[in-house]
């Protein structure tokens, strides 16, 4: 097929698909100039396959527009660094940690900095003067007078002006719902709603994460930002709502997640382990999951107060 540098305003030596994509993106930008119109017409008439590639590119463009159906009319997800005024210092930080009522009482240690740890259950929301923090299972949180630090595991922060969260080398000022996860080598932060300002320790460049945006920092590398698709966001946020959302996941993997959150352990026989399910479950009700597996997969169930065995 003949290749022509003039086929597209954007791509030289392009294949028909590349040129068609270039023209589709160019048409999306605004009306063509007379010269461009002529170039497009010339390219289309050169070869019937150019017409086909162009029709196909436009069809793909339309298909991708379906993504908007899932997306509310929210603000853009990504904003780049902007220097913002320093946050006001709050001198009086209510010692709210002492007053929290917990579903699964996290172990609290120390005084000036309260350390909360969770085992196989979510914590109830821990109140601070500027919002609440819910800890995932097997997580550790240090709550200080002016800020809190996620030491390991995951937490969900519902913050308002004044809330300061730290994890790894990052410092967050969330005004809305923020999901944080922290391992020794990686910190991941996801803005679920509202906006989250953040900066690296020892720097004064503030970034803004808007709803749907996620930032990942590996070790000492520069943080990477990306936008999440709405379904990805729902799936990542599910645990903080007490839900387990699985898409085409194996029984073994689902059972192991339930077992992290519950005393009552689910055992899946090897024959069932690789079967896959999709659905939304309540994290604290492994019985619901066992009943579903019975109905859908025809599995048999043996129950004791401590275990649910599917085979």
């Amino acid at each position: 097929m003949r290749r022509d540098a003039r086929v597209s305003p954007t791509l030289a030596n392009a294949s028909p698909d590349e040129a068609a994509a270039g023209w589709t993106a160019r048409l999306d930008k605004g009306p063509l100039s007379a010269g461009e119109q002529q170039a497009l017409q010339h390219w289309l008439e050169q070869d019937i396959r150019h017409k086909g590639a162009f029709l196909r590119a436009k069809a793909i463009w339309h298909a991708s527009g379906r993504l908007a159906a899932l997306q509310g009319p929210t603000a853009p997800a990504v904003a780049h660094p902007a220097t913002l005024p320093a946050l006001p210092r709050r001198r009086f930080f209510a010692a709210a940690a002492a007053a929290v009522a917990l579903l699964a009482v996290p172990k609290r240690q120390g005084k000036a900095n309260s350390l909360y740890t969770t085992a196989n259950a979510l914590s109830a929301p821990l109140s601070t003067a500027f919002g609440t923090i819910t800890l995932d299972c097997y997580s550790k949180l240090k709550m200080g007078l002016e800020s809190s630090r996620l030491v390991s595991g995951r937490c969900c922060v519902l913050g308002r002006t004044g809330m300061i969260m730290k994890a790894g080398e990052l410092i967050f000022a969330p005004q809305g719902r923020l999901l944080l996860s922290c391992t020794p080598s990686q910190v991941v932060a996801t803005a679920v709603s509202g906006t989250v300002r953040l900066r690296l320790h020892h720097t004064n460049d503030w970034w803004t994460l808007r709803a749907g945006a996620q930032i990942t920092q590996n070790g000492t590398q520069a943080p990477e930002m990306r936008s999440l698709m709405p379904e990805e966001l729902d799936a990542q946020n599910a645990w903080s709502l007490g839900q387990l959302e699985v898409h085409d996941e194996s029984m073994a993997s689902i059972a192991s997640t339930f077992n992290r959150y519950n005393q009552r352990q689910v055992h899946v026989s090897p024959a069932l382990a690789s079967h896959r399910l999709t659905g939304v479950f309540t994290l604290t009700r492994p019985e619901e999951f066992a009943a579903t597996a019975r109905t859908i997969l025809g599995a048999k169930l043996a129950e004791t107060p401590q275990t649910l065995s599917l085979y």
């Binding site: 991708s64 527009g65 908007a68 929210t74 853009p76 997800a77 990504v78 930002m225 990306r226 698709m229």
Partner: peptide, 9 residues
């Protein structure tokens, strides 16, 4: 990011 801003948002 650009594609999501343009097509999804």
């Amino acid at each position: 990011d650009i594609f999501i801003l343009r097509r999804a948002r």
